[in-house]
């Protein structure tokens, strides 16, 4: 490496240090801007409305109905006794079938909340998760974790603490997520290091796949139609189809097509996508069991979007409601965490 000229005194050295840091940071940002380090915000700027357009063609009739329904509700709320009552009354009459249709189905965001209630028990809970990875129908790797989830006080999301229990190399490692704050603790080094959401620690599964999340807090939903689809057990379900768009850049998936059973509102299938609509993974939910009073999926089969022969099965067991001290979810506590004993 080339020897660089150095200032005569410490002050010059400090200046040079920060200049070098700024230069290297600038280089990294340049790469980022050039597309090598892609950020969801940037892709949004590059393809403004592209995916929205393609969705719009499929959803246009329904969206139009929704808009009209909103107008109707707005009018009713503001008072029908105004001067334009006759005209409005005519519009109301014309839109009665639409309103009746909408009234039969909860609003998309409400549907999402119902789905969340199926996915996550109320309050704090823990879950044992086993991940099995298949390549060309052959089991190639397994790992297991315990996920401790606690509703966060302010955000409405979950704080998650993950304890790795298998394979042996990873046993005892901890991963903590509070919002966008993500930390990895390795008992060998006794050190906690901040990691980025893109850091991959679970094979093909994303960190977001195993952590408890509230979709309704991270996504804006639109209802795009209804369809009959098969769940992971092959059983057919009549489903409402939602399209979810992330409201924050740091979520695992920027867009989701979600099929929810029309009766139970349980998730049946999800297509996880990039902001441009590229398919990343497809998830099939299966093995519904009555857990804490609700039929919940205990297995999720995740299929790679590029290679359908890459399959991960995420199996949940021992979903248990429990109280946990808030200190468990602080980075300073990671070195003290001893599992269920506290």
């Amino acid at each position: 490496m080339r020897a660089l000229p150095v200032g005569r005194n410490a002050r010059a050295g400090v200046q040079r240090f920060f200049a070098l840091t700024a230069y290297r940071l600038g280089s990294a940002l340049h790469l980022w801007h050039a597309g090598f380090l892609q950020h969801p915000h940037q892709t949004q700027r590059r393809n403004p409305g592209k995916s929205a357009q393609s969705r719009q063609s499929a959803c246009a009739p329904f969206m139009s109905s929704c808009r009209r329904a909103v107008v109707v509700f707005s009018m009713l709320r503001k008072g029908v006794a105004s001067a334009g009552f006759a005209i409005r009354a005519k519009r109301i009459f014309l839109l009665v079938p639409v309103v009746a249709n909408i009234a039969a189905t909860p609003a998309p965001q409400a549907l999402l909340q119902l789905a969340d209630a199926v996915r996550n028990p109320q309050g704090s809970f823990s879950t044992d998760i086993t991940l099995s990875e298949y390549r060309e129908r052959r089991l190639v790797a397994t790992s297991s974790l315990v996920v401790y989830s606690q509703p966060a006080e302010n955000s409405g999301q979950y704080n998650n603490l993950i304890k790795f229990t298998r394979p042996v190399d990873d046993a005892g490692k901890l991963m903590l997520r509070n919002g966008i704050d993500l930390w990895l603790f390795d008992p060998v080094s006794s050190a906690s290091i901040r990691i980025s959401p893109q850091a991959r620690l679970l094979g093909q599964a994303s960190n977001g796949d195993v952590m408890s999340t509230v979709w309704a807090k991270d996504y804006a939903a639109t209802l795009t139609g209804a369809a009959t689809v098969a769940d992971g057990d092959g059983a057919a379900h009549r489903c409402s189809v939602l399209h979810l768009l992330a409201t924050r850049p740091d979520v695992t998936y920027q867009a989701i097509d979600l099929w929810l059973d029309q009766d139970s509102h349980a998730p049946v299938r999800a297509d996880y996508r990039t902001q441009e609509g590229r398919l990343l993974k497809t998830a099939y939910f299966r093995r519904f069991e009555n857990i804490l009073g609700v039929a919940r999926p205990t297995e999720t089969v995740i299929i790679d979007g590029l290679n359908p022969d890459w399959v991960t099965v995420m199996e949940s067991a021992h979903i248990t409601a429990r109280s946990m001290p808030a200190s468990w979810f602080q980075r300073s506590y990671l070195g003290r965490f001893a599992g269920d004993a506290g």
């Binding site: 129908r137 795009t224 689809v229 489903c239 299966r286 093995r287 359908p308």
Partner: peptide, 15 residues
């Protein structure tokens, strides 16, 4: 999404 739902289901490992 409705049309996509009708695509053939890929291989899933038995439960």
């Amino acid at each position: 999404a409705t049309a996509r739902a009708q695509t053939p289901m890929p291989w899933l490992p038995p439960a």
